[in-house]
Design a protein around this nucleic acid. Structure first.
Lengths: 195, 195, 195, 195
DNA sequence: AATGAATGAGCCTTCATTCAT
DNA sequence: GATGAATGAAGGCTCATTCAT
């Protein structure tokens, strides 16, 4: 019987020193989420974080950097999660793997949304898009081969792509639609088993 | 106060006009695709279509109308395709259904991209988003029940969602990666067969 | 006993040949009245008169000319009226003179409104303002001296100005507020009698 | 949906800001006076006050607010004056009342001009027109009854209108034409005495 | 370092006016 | 002559970014 972990503080958030910076990033998340990259204004982000516009620029010399800061955080979290899975991948049953992946997506759902909005935003940092996605795919591919040793590299890469995409559905679904998560899990399990 | 008739594109009344409109729509597609709705500027669209800004506005009284023009076209095409499938759905094997759906997505790939960028765009016309998506899902759901009579309505609706999403992958993949299409087809076939 | 003149057709309007021109001037009156000079658009005037924009410009090479055309018409009408009074001024009692002037203003009320809007409009034709006003004042002054022979020229000019202004009130009052007209008449009568 | 708080001018928080605002208001007065509301451009106002367009908008979020700023000031001044008269109205002779009113108009002449141009301007804030005018008329009416107790309310209201109008003449006359002021004073005196 | 004023390029849109058909 | 498409200057306004205090 494990002691029920007390619900972690809702936002241990950024470990970054400055509280200011944390506040800004927080506000930025909200605003980006609400309006998208283009429509979000530095002024509003400043206001919501109770930061003078001048100060905001002291920390983030321009809008894009602010967005990138976000993406970095996100990537970091994704990696943590993925590495967590990778650590136990060996020997996982297809079912377990499917469940783990779905769980990981659910865990990141919040941030995933903003991250995708930012990456999607044409122009500025969308260069990151391909790279990021490819990088994560590689990671995923490694996990696959670890759990499903019979896969050759090429096939694993291919599968990674599809999985990556299918998992998006989990991110885009409201938390109460459990059926979707279940469905996806089933689908993945099958996909892992298939051949 | 005039009734707020949602401004509609003005139909050109002369040949010259029609050419212009075609050129504009072409340029618009490119620009929207490249930069997204927000970042796309009317000025650039005008420039690329070698149209004076005033002329652009003659036919499309504002940016949103221009965007809607695409969405309408797109929806129309989607419906055509979907109705085509629906007509033959009855009696299709799972494999055939899967293939038909994948083929339909491949056929629309081009436009799909822009359409999604526009619908995604926060603000203006994103109201359409939910509606459109829901509408298409319903259509898809009907097709499913036609081909797979054992499905009850609820289940069909649920499946429609997942299918809809998985099919996106087809749209987002470059045409030469046949493997993806094949993979998706397999996945769908399984999904249709499963239970 | 004069035969009661049948109420003249509401708009014998412009004697100008072209019906087109008449229609345009009509539409212009409406639009200028509704929106003022600046906010009135040539396009709307064209539309309301069912004239193609190109044709509108054939007759009135630019917006200002159109407005001037109006003012000319108006001045013409004012003169007609004023001359009418002048013809009978000699020997009028102060009361009669006051009544005649008030009546004349009431007759022109409609047009007066638009005319003033146009003249007031900064920029373009407001040059006309002083001139026109001065001209009419002179005319009025002559009438005064005709009816009230004891006035010297300077005094008549002075009075003309005040009268001109007081009469505006008549133009600006809705037709049903008879009290205003009566009041003004009284005031003028006094003013004529005073010294 | 935020409550549509009518946008108000932003109060500057530093000395520099206050100077700017003063400069802007100065320039605005000139430009509005010269061109009228519609034809006045924010760009010109900015230029004349040597303010960057962005700064202009920092303090006055749009053209209308800028105009309203004037009207508010003007109304305030008018009220001060009128209240001053009201305080001593009781027991005034008709002559004194007439003189007081004329003096009050002379005092406000400067601003009156711009104010009227702005209020006259169709569209935006012309809603204020009727209200303002009616409000002042009420005030005036009260003064009348105070000085001329024999008036009943209805009659006072009626007179107020005519007086209001006649006083305009004072505002519109160049200061050196003393005769006009004298004339108006006489006229008013008579008007007050008459019945 | 913090604050908020200043700046100006650039956006969407309108409209008078000209031109090709 | 009539028609309506084409043009582009100009306007109001926003916002990322820089600077003075």
């Amino acid at each position: 019987m494990s002691i029920p972990t007390p619900p972690a503080p809702l936002a241990p958030k950024r470990r970054r020193g400055h509280l200011r910076v944390a506040a800004i990033l927080d506000a930025a998340e909200t605003v980006f989420a609400e309006k998208g990259y283009d429509a979000a204004t530095m002024t509003e982000i400043a206001a919501r974080s109770k930061t003078a516009i001048g100060s905001l620029y002291r920390f983030f010399p321009n809008k894009e950097v602010l967005a990138q800061a976000f993406l970095s955080d996100y990537v970091e979290k994704v990696l943590e999660n993925l590495n967590g899975i990778a650590a136990h991948a060996e020997g996982m049953t297809p079912r377990q793997l499917a469940e783990a992946l779905v769980a990981y997506r659910i865990a990141l759902k919040e941030h995933r949304r903003v991250a995708s909005v930012l990456v999607e935003a044409g122009g500025d940092m969308s260069g990151m898009r391909g790279d990021l996605s490819a990088f994560l795919r590689t990671k995923l591919s490694a996990i696959l081969r670890s759990a499903l040793p019979h896969l050759d590299e090429a096939r694993a890469a291919e599968m990674a792509r599809l999985i990556q995409h299918v998992l998006k559905l989990v991110s885009e679904t409201s938390p109460d639609e459990k059926a979707v998560a279940a469905d996806v899990t089933d689908l993945l399990e099958f996909y892992f088993t298939k051949r």
